[in-house]
């Protein structure tokens, strides 16, 4: 440990590998978020109208979240094998809960008189959903997506356990070689990389919110 290489030197020599890992990390999280968003909003739309179905959806997705991520990936390996597949499945499952819950809460929170008005002026079921209910529920849904993304950033690091992609590999390598010259630097670089990515994503969401939330309902 006393001979640990200076952190900046480490970054200087390994930055190419680190950037590749960071890119793969971000790309995995992003793609899983897209899938989780589509699935989560879909589940929300299908269940919010029934008290019973909505509660089941929320309970199931929150149960998923209580499974430790390491165990989840471990359990997925025999089913889907090593590599990218368990990472994607696990991340998508974890990402669902905040989105499903916020979609249901958001859609249920739309003022019933507005739904009544939409019906009354002759909007079809689909028009009501896409032009009134979803736009009004969009801010809470976007918040759900943001929370999910933050969570997945951390969880994605575990994916390296199943030889998945991302900055987790750097961290695991460091942990696996504790005591060696670069061990601490590796853990530190992986962790900081995840934090920086998370901040970048969050900034992107703020921008997306600015662009997609209509001025009339922006707080």
């Amino acid at each position: 440990m006393s001979t640990s290489v200076d952190f900046w030197d480490y970054l200087g020599t390994r930055h190419e590998q680190l950037l590749t890992d960071a890119y793969q990390h971000a790309s995995a999280v992003f793609q899983c978020m897209v899938v989780a968003t589509v699935l989560g909003v879909l589940i929300g739309v299908l269940t919010y109208r029934s008290g019973w179905a909505g509660n089941v959806a929320t309970t199931v997705t929150s149960t998923v979240l209580t499974v430790p991520s390491l165990a989840m990936i471990g359990l997925l390996i025999p089913v889907v094998g090593l590599g990218v597949a368990p990472t994607v499945v696990a991340l998508t499952l974890y990402g669902l809960l905040p989105i499903v819950r916020n979609a249901i809460v958001g859609l249920r929170g739309v003022d019933p008189t507005l739904v009544d008005a939409a019906k009354g002026i002759g909007m079809s079921r689909a028009a009501r959903l896409f032009r009134v209910e979803l736009p009004i529920a969009w801010p809470p849904i976007l918040t759900g997506i943001r929370v999910s993304t933050q969570m997945l950033m951390g969880i994605a690091a575990i994916a390296a356990y199943a030889s998945g992609p991302g900055l987790g590999n750097v961290i695991f390598r460091g942990i696996g070689s504790l005591g060696s010259r670069n061990a601490l630097n590796q853990v530190l670089a992986g962790t900081l990389g995840i934090v920086v990515l998370a901040l970048l994503f969050d900034a992107a969401y703020v921008l997306i919110g600015r662009l997609t939330i209509p001025r009339g309902i922006r707080v």
Binding site: T113, L114, D116, A117, A118, K119, G120, I121, G122, M123, S124, R131, V132, P135, I136, P214, G216, I217
Partner: peptide, 22 residues
């Protein structure tokens, strides 16, 4: 009913305007 309602104007208490539209 959707067809019917497009021929029948409907105004309600507290206007029922959609807040996300101008």
């Amino acid at each position: 009913p959707v067809k019917l309602r497009r021929k029948v104007g409907y105004a309600i208490q507290s206007s029922g305007l959609f807040p996300h539209m101008t």
